[in-house]
Design a protein around this nucleic acid. Structure first.
Length: 149
DNA sequence: GCCAACGTTGGC
DNA sequence: GCCAACGTTGGC
């Protein structure tokens, strides 16, 4: 089992939205590195749900991968803001998985995350990190859950 | 809203 | 293959 951190702007889709929906298609990722991470997800992988561009930003809850990776439907939809004219059904460019909530966490703001010793080397805190999906070690995952109490 | 950081694109 | 221009992300 692998551990991941997925970012979402809560004004667009929050952890509360995920709780309400029960399951969601994690679509719209348009970065190759992040896509490759999604492509390597398997059902049961644990996901830290992070609110970015928020006030404050931070960790809001835990989610779980509940599907194998599949072609992101939004790339084929001309009405979608994520439409990719270079993608075709037989040559998709982007990948999605389905996510379900596991449980809400006590919110852990970014300034608290910065002080967690186990996270000092994490991609999350790396300078200039802009990946919307990134891997966590089991240690980093446990430290985040512990920071939430 | 600003802007630093960084990924992607495309001309050459 | 280089790199300038451009677009996007995300903290503040």
């Amino acid at each position: 089992m692998s551990y991941w951190l997925a970012k979402s702007e809560p004004s667009a889709y929050s952890f509360a939205d995920l709780l309400a929906d029960g399951v969601t298609v994690w679509d719209g990722v348009r970065n190759f590195q992040a896509r490759n991470f999604i492509s390597s997800m398997i059902p049961g992988d644990q996901v830290v749900f992070y609110h970015s561009n928020a006030d404050p930003s931070g960790v809001a809850g835990l989610a779980e991968v509940v599907s194998v990776p599949f072609a992101d439907p939004s790339q084929f939809d001309p009405q979608s803001r994520y439409f990719d004219p270079r993608a075709s059904l037989d040559r998709p460019r982007w990948t999605s998985v389905r996510l379900s909530p596991v449980r809400q966490l006590e919110f852990v703001p970014l300034d608290v995350l910065r002080r967690v010793p186990q996270l000092q080397g994490s991609q999350l805190l790396a300078k200039g990190n802009r990946l919307s999906v990134l891997p966590l070690t089991a240690d980093e995952f446990a430290a985040i859950v512990a920071a939430a109490g």
